[in-house]
Protein backbone atom coordinates (compact mmCIF):
# COMPACT_ATOMS: atom_id res chain seq x y z
CA UNK A 1 0.00 0.00 0.00
CA UNK A 2 2.71 2.43 0.96
CA UNK A 3 4.37 1.54 -2.30
CA UNK A 4 1.34 2.75 -4.17
CA UNK A 5 1.18 5.92 -2.10
CA UNK A 6 4.83 6.53 -2.80
CA UNK A 7 4.21 6.04 -6.50
CA UNK A 8 1.37 8.50 -6.38
CA UNK A 9 3.60 11.00 -4.66
CA UNK A 10 6.36 10.47 -7.20
CA UNK A 11 3.76 10.82 -9.90
CA UNK A 12 2.57 14.14 -8.55
CA UNK A 13 6.14 15.31 -8.35
CA UNK A 14 6.90 14.39 -11.93
CA UNK A 15 3.50 15.79 -12.88
CA UNK A 16 4.38 19.16 -11.41
CA UNK A 17 7.46 19.35 -13.58
CA UNK A 18 5.59 18.23 -16.69
CA UNK A 19 2.88 20.77 -15.91
CA UNK A 20 5.45 23.55 -15.99
CA UNK A 21 6.74 22.29 -19.34
CA UNK A 22 3.27 22.01 -20.77
CA UNK A 23 2.12 25.41 -19.56
CA UNK A 24 5.08 27.10 -21.18
CA UNK A 25 4.58 25.23 -24.42
CA UNK A 26 0.90 25.97 -24.61
CA UNK A 27 1.36 29.68 -23.97
CA UNK A 28 3.44 30.10 -27.08
CA UNK A 29 0.97 27.96 -28.94
CA UNK A 30 -1.96 30.12 -27.88
CA UNK A 31 -0.38 33.32 -28.95
CA UNK A 32 1.51 32.27 -32.05
CA UNK A 33 -0.49 29.24 -33.07
CA UNK A 34 2.32 26.75 -33.49
CA UNK A 35 4.07 24.14 -31.33
CA UNK A 36 7.56 25.25 -30.49
CA UNK A 37 9.55 22.18 -31.18
CA UNK A 38 12.58 23.68 -29.58
CA UNK A 39 10.84 24.14 -26.22
CA UNK A 40 12.60 21.01 -25.01
CA UNK A 41 15.92 22.70 -25.57
CA UNK A 42 14.86 25.69 -23.48
CA UNK A 43 14.21 23.18 -20.72
CA UNK A 44 17.57 21.55 -21.22
CA UNK A 45 19.58 24.73 -21.49
CA UNK A 46 17.85 26.14 -18.43
CA UNK A 47 19.12 23.18 -16.47
CA UNK A 48 22.61 23.30 -17.93
CA UNK A 49 22.95 27.03 -17.45
CA UNK A 50 22.34 26.63 -13.74
CA UNK A 51 24.99 23.92 -13.75
CA UNK A 52 27.34 26.31 -15.51
CA UNK A 53 26.90 29.14 -13.05
CA UNK A 54 27.21 26.89 -10.05
CA UNK A 55 30.42 25.38 -11.39
CA UNK A 56 33.74 26.67 -12.69
CA UNK A 57 34.58 29.47 -12.84
CA UNK A 58 31.61 31.10 -11.17
CA UNK A 59 30.79 28.90 -8.19
CA UNK A 60 27.65 30.84 -7.37
CA UNK A 61 25.36 29.41 -4.77
CA UNK A 62 22.08 28.03 -6.07
CA UNK A 63 19.89 31.06 -5.54
CA UNK A 64 22.37 33.43 -7.08
CA UNK A 65 23.06 31.19 -10.06
CA UNK A 66 19.33 31.03 -10.73
CA UNK A 67 19.33 34.62 -11.88
CA UNK A 68 21.70 34.35 -14.84
CA UNK A 69 20.32 30.91 -15.65
CA UNK A 70 16.81 32.33 -15.96
CA UNK A 71 18.07 35.42 -17.71
CA UNK A 72 20.00 33.57 -20.38
CA UNK A 73 17.27 31.03 -20.97
CA UNK A 74 14.86 33.90 -21.53
CA UNK A 75 17.33 35.45 -23.95
CA UNK A 76 17.53 32.13 -25.73
CA UNK A 77 13.77 31.97 -26.08
CA UNK A 78 13.53 35.56 -27.27
CA UNK A 79 16.42 34.94 -29.63
CA UNK A 80 14.76 31.89 -31.12
CA UNK A 81 11.68 33.91 -31.87
CA UNK A 82 13.51 36.92 -33.19
CA UNK A 83 16.00 35.10 -35.42
CA UNK A 84 13.96 32.19 -36.72
CA UNK A 85 10.26 32.37 -35.94
CA UNK A 86 9.63 36.01 -36.63
CA UNK A 87 10.83 35.88 -40.25
CA UNK A 88 8.63 32.83 -40.66
CA UNK A 89 5.51 34.30 -39.06
CA UNK A 90 3.52 34.25 -42.24
CA UNK A 91 4.48 30.81 -43.50
CA UNK A 92 2.65 27.61 -42.75
CA UNK A 93 2.96 25.63 -39.57
CA UNK A 94 5.04 22.92 -41.17
CA UNK A 95 7.82 25.25 -42.20
CA UNK A 96 7.83 26.50 -38.62
CA UNK A 97 7.97 22.98 -37.33
CA UNK A 98 10.95 22.08 -39.46
CA UNK A 99 12.73 25.29 -38.54
CA UNK A 100 12.05 24.56 -34.88
CA UNK A 101 13.43 21.06 -35.38
CA UNK A 102 16.54 22.67 -36.78
CA UNK A 103 16.85 24.94 -33.75
CA UNK A 104 16.32 22.01 -31.44
CA UNK A 105 19.00 20.00 -33.16
CA UNK A 106 21.37 22.93 -33.16
CA UNK A 107 20.90 23.62 -29.46
CA UNK A 108 21.03 20.01 -28.40
CA UNK A 109 24.32 19.45 -30.13
CA UNK A 110 25.54 22.77 -28.86
CA UNK A 111 25.03 21.52 -25.33
CA UNK A 112 26.77 18.29 -26.22
CA UNK A 113 29.65 20.25 -27.63
CA UNK A 114 30.16 22.13 -24.38
CA UNK A 115 29.29 19.53 -21.82
CA UNK A 116 29.61 16.22 -23.58
CA UNK A 117 27.05 13.47 -23.64
CA UNK A 118 27.69 12.07 -20.17
CA UNK A 119 25.17 12.34 -17.41
CA UNK A 120 25.78 15.08 -14.93
CA UNK A 121 24.14 16.14 -11.70
CA UNK A 122 24.06 19.27 -9.60
CA UNK A 123 25.86 17.40 -6.91
CA UNK A 124 23.64 18.30 -4.00
CA UNK A 125 23.87 15.74 -1.29
CA UNK A 126 20.71 13.84 -0.59
CA UNK A 127 19.83 14.95 2.88
CA UNK A 128 17.50 13.00 5.03
CA UNK A 129 13.95 13.94 4.37
CA UNK A 130 10.71 13.32 6.14
CA UNK A 131 8.09 10.66 6.27
CA UNK A 132 4.49 11.67 6.11
CA UNK A 133 1.66 9.20 5.92
CA UNK A 134 3.97 6.43 4.74
CA UNK A 135 5.42 8.65 2.02
CA UNK A 136 9.05 9.63 2.17
CA UNK A 137 10.15 12.85 0.61
CA UNK A 138 13.38 14.76 0.47
CA UNK A 139 13.99 18.45 0.77
CA UNK A 140 14.63 18.60 -2.96
CA UNK A 141 11.24 17.15 -3.66
CA UNK A 142 9.54 19.57 -1.31
CA UNK A 143 11.31 22.31 -3.25
CA UNK A 144 9.83 20.99 -6.46
CA UNK A 145 6.33 21.14 -5.09
CA UNK A 146 6.76 24.60 -3.63
CA UNK A 147 8.40 25.97 -6.75
CA UNK A 148 5.63 24.61 -8.93
CA UNK A 149 2.95 26.07 -6.71
CA UNK A 150 4.75 29.38 -6.81
CA UNK A 151 4.91 29.31 -10.60
CA UNK A 152 1.24 28.46 -10.88
CA UNK A 153 0.29 31.35 -8.64
CA UNK A 154 2.48 33.72 -10.62
CA UNK A 155 0.97 32.54 -13.89
CA UNK A 156 -2.53 33.01 -12.53
CA UNK A 157 -1.83 36.52 -11.31
CA UNK A 158 -0.23 37.33 -14.59
CA UNK A 159 -2.98 36.06 -16.84
CA UNK A 160 -5.93 37.26 -14.82
CA UNK A 161 -4.77 40.22 -12.79
CA UNK A 162 -2.27 42.01 -14.96
CA UNK A 163 -2.91 44.02 -18.07
CA UNK A 164 -0.15 42.37 -20.03
CA UNK A 165 -1.47 38.94 -19.12
CA UNK A 166 -4.92 39.90 -20.25
CA UNK A 167 -3.38 41.26 -23.41
CA UNK A 168 -1.77 37.85 -23.91
CA UNK A 169 -5.17 36.23 -23.65
CA UNK A 170 -6.61 38.79 -26.04
CA UNK A 171 -3.87 38.18 -28.60
CA UNK A 172 -4.47 34.45 -28.27
CA UNK A 173 -8.13 34.99 -29.04
CA UNK A 174 -7.70 37.19 -32.06
CA UNK A 175 -4.47 38.77 -33.15
CA UNK A 176 -5.97 41.16 -35.68
CA UNK A 177 -8.59 42.40 -33.27
CA UNK A 178 -5.91 42.89 -30.64
CA UNK A 179 -3.88 45.04 -32.97
CA UNK A 180 -6.79 47.29 -33.90
CA UNK A 181 -7.76 47.56 -30.25
CA UNK A 182 -4.43 49.16 -29.63
CA UNK A 183 -2.69 46.23 -27.97
CA UNK A 184 1.00 46.19 -28.80
CA UNK A 185 1.13 42.74 -30.30
CA UNK A 186 4.91 42.64 -30.58
CA UNK A 187 5.40 43.47 -26.94
CA UNK A 188 2.81 40.94 -25.93
CA UNK A 189 4.45 38.24 -28.00
CA UNK A 190 7.84 39.03 -26.50
CA UNK A 191 6.37 38.81 -23.05
CA UNK A 192 4.85 35.44 -23.86
CA UNK A 193 8.25 34.12 -24.83
CA UNK A 194 9.68 35.45 -21.59
CA UNK A 195 7.13 33.57 -19.51
CA UNK A 196 7.36 30.44 -21.63
CA UNK A 197 11.15 30.36 -21.36
CA UNK A 198 11.07 31.07 -17.66
CA UNK A 199 8.70 28.17 -17.05
CA UNK A 200 10.88 25.92 -19.18
CA UNK A 201 13.96 26.98 -17.25
CA UNK A 202 12.44 26.40 -13.84
CA UNK A 203 10.99 23.08 -14.95
CA UNK A 204 14.29 21.97 -16.39
CA UNK A 205 16.16 22.86 -13.22
CA UNK A 206 13.64 21.01 -11.08
CA UNK A 207 13.88 18.01 -13.35
CA UNK A 208 17.66 18.01 -13.21
CA UNK A 209 17.44 18.40 -9.45
CA UNK A 210 15.29 15.33 -9.22
CA UNK A 211 17.11 13.24 -11.81
CA UNK A 212 20.14 14.34 -13.83
CA UNK A 213 21.36 16.38 -16.77
CA UNK A 214 21.96 15.08 -20.25
CA UNK A 215 21.69 16.71 -23.65
CA UNK A 216 18.77 14.55 -24.73
CA UNK A 217 16.57 15.52 -21.80
CA UNK A 218 14.83 18.20 -23.79
CA UNK A 219 13.44 16.11 -26.58
CA UNK A 220 11.85 13.38 -24.56
CA UNK A 221 10.19 15.93 -22.31
CA UNK A 222 8.91 17.84 -25.28
CA UNK A 223 6.95 14.80 -26.31
CA UNK A 224 5.52 14.55 -22.78
CA UNK A 225 4.65 18.24 -22.72
CA UNK A 226 2.94 17.85 -26.03
CA UNK A 227 0.96 14.88 -24.79
CA UNK A 228 -0.03 16.91 -21.74
CA UNK A 229 -1.36 19.80 -23.74
CA UNK A 230 -3.30 17.43 -25.96
CA UNK A 231 -4.86 15.84 -22.91
CA UNK A 232 -5.78 19.13 -21.36
CA UNK A 233 -7.01 20.76 -24.52
CA UNK A 234 -4.60 22.57 -26.76
CA UNK A 235 -4.22 26.21 -25.86
CA UNK A 236 -5.72 25.79 -22.43
CA UNK A 237 -3.21 26.74 -19.77
CA UNK A 238 -5.01 25.08 -16.88
CA UNK A 239 -5.65 22.05 -19.05
CA UNK A 240 -1.91 21.84 -19.60
CA UNK A 241 -1.41 21.88 -15.85
CA UNK A 242 -3.77 18.97 -15.29
CA UNK A 243 -2.46 17.18 -18.33
CA UNK A 244 1.04 17.33 -16.96
CA UNK A 245 0.01 16.04 -13.56
CA UNK A 246 -1.99 13.28 -15.15
CA UNK A 247 0.96 12.13 -17.21
CA UNK A 248 3.23 12.21 -14.19
CA UNK A 249 0.80 10.05 -12.27
CA UNK A 250 0.25 7.71 -15.20
CA UNK A 251 3.97 7.23 -15.68
CA UNK A 252 4.68 6.44 -12.08
CA UNK A 253 1.71 4.21 -11.55
CA UNK A 254 2.38 2.33 -14.74
CA UNK A 255 5.69 1.00 -13.47
CA UNK A 256 3.62 -1.14 -11.18
CA UNK A 257 2.62 -3.02 -14.30
CA UNK A 258 5.22 -2.64 -16.98
CA UNK A 259 8.97 -2.47 -17.24
CA UNK A 260 10.63 0.80 -16.25
CA UNK A 261 12.42 1.01 -19.57
CA UNK A 262 9.16 2.07 -21.15
CA UNK A 263 8.28 4.69 -18.60
CA UNK A 264 9.04 7.45 -21.02
CA UNK A 265 6.71 6.04 -23.61
CA UNK A 266 3.63 6.28 -21.38
CA UNK A 267 3.02 9.83 -22.46
CA UNK A 268 3.08 8.80 -26.04
CA UNK A 269 0.80 5.91 -25.31
CA UNK A 270 -1.69 8.30 -23.69
CA UNK A 271 -1.59 10.39 -26.79
CA UNK A 272 -2.33 7.43 -29.02
CA UNK A 273 -5.20 6.35 -26.78
CA UNK A 274 -6.64 9.84 -26.85
CA UNK A 275 -6.44 9.93 -30.60
CA UNK A 276 -8.11 6.59 -30.96
CA UNK A 277 -10.90 7.40 -28.56
CA UNK A 278 -11.52 11.05 -29.30
CA UNK A 279 -10.01 11.89 -32.65
CA UNK A 280 -12.45 14.69 -33.13
CA UNK A 281 -10.30 16.63 -30.71
CA UNK A 282 -7.80 17.27 -33.40
CA UNK A 283 -9.24 16.23 -36.69
CA UNK A 284 -8.86 18.35 -39.73
CA UNK A 285 -6.88 21.33 -40.81
CA UNK A 286 -9.05 23.89 -39.10
CA UNK A 287 -8.43 25.50 -35.76
Amino acid sequence: MSYILQSIFNGLLAGCIYALFAMGLTMVYRVLNFVNFAHGELIMWGAYLLYLFMGDPFHFPLYVALIPALGFTILLGLGMDWIVFKPLRRTNRLTLLIAALGISFFLRNGAQLFWGAELRTYGFEIKRGWRLFHISMTANQMAIILATLGCIIIVYLLLYRSIIGKAMRAVSDNLELARVTGINAKKTIRFTWIISSALACVGGILLALDTNLQPGMGMINLVKAFAAILLGGVGNVWGALWGGIFIGLAENLSVLFISTGYKDSIAFGMMVLLLLLRPRVLYGSQE
Binding site: L94, V223, G261, F268, V272, L275, L282
Partner: peptide, 28 residues
Protein backbone atom coordinates in the same frame (compact mmCIF):
# COMPACT_ATOMS: atom_id res chain seq x y z
CA UNK B 1 -4.24 4.63 -38.33
CA UNK B 2 -4.15 6.76 -35.19
CA UNK B 3 -1.84 9.48 -36.34
CA UNK B 4 -3.14 10.39 -39.76
CA UNK B 5 -6.19 11.92 -38.18
CA UNK B 6 -3.93 14.63 -36.89
CA UNK B 7 -3.31 17.94 -38.45
CA UNK B 8 0.06 18.40 -40.12
CA UNK B 9 2.24 19.61 -37.32
CA UNK B 10 0.63 17.33 -34.74
CA UNK B 11 1.25 14.45 -37.07
CA UNK B 12 4.89 15.44 -37.14
CA UNK B 13 5.20 15.37 -33.39
CA UNK B 14 3.23 12.18 -33.01
CA UNK B 15 5.39 10.37 -35.56
CA UNK B 16 8.48 11.72 -33.89
CA UNK B 17 7.28 10.24 -30.63
CA UNK B 18 6.69 6.97 -32.40
CA UNK B 19 10.23 6.94 -33.66
CA UNK B 20 11.56 7.48 -30.18
CA UNK B 21 9.32 4.79 -28.72
CA UNK B 22 10.51 2.31 -31.28
CA UNK B 23 14.08 3.08 -30.45
CA UNK B 24 13.22 2.34 -26.84
CA UNK B 25 11.77 -0.96 -27.92
CA UNK B 26 14.99 -1.79 -29.74
CA UNK B 27 16.85 -0.85 -26.61
CA UNK B 28 14.71 -2.58 -24.02
Amino acid sequence: IPSLRLRGDYFGIATLGFGEILRMVFQN
